[in-house]
């Protein structure tokens, strides 16, 4: 894939989906699905995250990038209720979700995956999928004894799970233990399982980490098709080729703060971003994609 092609698709996407958002930190979006204000988290004396204002546009692929230790994963954990904040508020689809535990954030429609894939290894692939379905009567202790009631739900959920497995090319593995899948297949399973919850926003923490190059293309395709179905995608990633190729918008974190926002072409030419990457560490893999022009 040449960089010209990526530029073209990236630029085209910005016009469509970002509705002319200004490329500067904390810029307002025309239709934000997630709005965060003053989100702070420190570990001892170290401030890991201190985000003044951040909006994520609905129906886009937004990438969260930054050098190692910039606080990307911490911000992810905070927003999804998997870590406790020191301060700040954020709302999802207009409803405040700050301070809510992880499972309630997920129920609100903001579902995440993990950097280290969490396949439920000693359960079958299909069971992994069914666990994602929401509002199951049989998941309540008393409801568990009402087999006729949850049996019908189970059938409908299984149909949906099979469709997703089909789409993610895991349908042949449905009766296998999730622990027997390869690393890349586990990533696919985790994404499919997150989709089982029918989220309006999906947050992917390094979806490409440890995935072989052949599978990267298929993962990318899955991510763009999610957006094309109207879902919002926020993802953390290190691979610059991937980021520049599919993102509509990029948010750059450094030392816990948002230092830049913009379309891939804005970010590519942003001096602050280049400084953040080059100033903190030597030229590494992460800057190869943006540095070679």
């Amino acid at each position: 894939m040449s960089s010209d092609e990526m530029d073209a698709s990236g630029a085209g996407a910005v016009v469509d989906r970002m509705a002319g958002a200004v490329p500067e930190p904390g810029s307002a979006k025309s239709d934000p699905i997630l709005v965060a204000d003053g989100v702070r988290r420190s570990f001892g004396g170290l401030t890991a995250v201190d985000v003044g204002h951040l909006e994520v546009q609905r129906g886009t692929i937004t990438a969260l990038i930054g050098p190692n230790g910039a606080g990307k994963s911490t911000l992810f954990n905070l927003l999804t209720g998997f870590d406790r904040v020191d301060g700040g508020r954020w709302s999802f689809e207009g409803r405040s979700v700050n301070g809510r535990p992880g499972h309630r954030v997920a129920r609100a429609g903001m579902v995440r995956t993990f950097q280290l894939t969490k396949a439920l290894t000693r359960m079958t692939v299909l069971d992994n999928m069914l666990l994602g379905a929401q509002g199951q009567v049989g998941e309540r202790m008393a409801g568990a004894f009402l087999r006729p009631v949850w049996g019908r739900q189970e059938k409908a959920n299984t149909v949906r799970a099979m469709e997703l497995l089909e789409r993610f090319k895991l349908v042949d593995k449905r009766q296998d233990m999730a622990g027997s899948l390869s690393g890349g297949q586990r990533k696919l399973l985790e994404m499919a399982r997150a989709l089982m919850t029918d989220p309006s926003m999906i947050m992917l923490d390094e979806p490409m980490a440890g995935v072989n190059p052949a599978l990267v293309q298929s993962l990318l395709h899955h991510i763009t098709s999610l957006r094309d179905e109207g879902k919002t995608v926020l993802f953390v990633e290190h691979d610059m080729d991937v980021i520049m190729g599919i993102s509509d918008w990029i948010v750059v974190l450094a030392q816990g703060q948002v230092i830049a926002e913009g379309s891939p072409s804005d970010i590519r030419s942003n001096q602050q971003v280049i400084d953040a990457y080059l100033g903190v560490q030597e030229v590494g893999d992460e800057v190869r994609g943006s540095g070679d022009e």
Binding site: H103, L120, R122, L131, F145, M196
Partner: peptide, 29 residues
């Protein structure tokens, strides 16, 4: 047997495997 072979049992077995993953799917672990 009845509990474990129900969706309730599936959640509980999921917690045995990885509690955080189950929480991320909207279950109150």
């Amino acid at each position: 047997w009845l509990l474990i072979h129900s969706p309730w049992g599936r959640v509980v077995r999921g917690i045995r495997e990885d509690e955080e993953a189950v929480r991320s799917l909207g279950k109150n672990a």
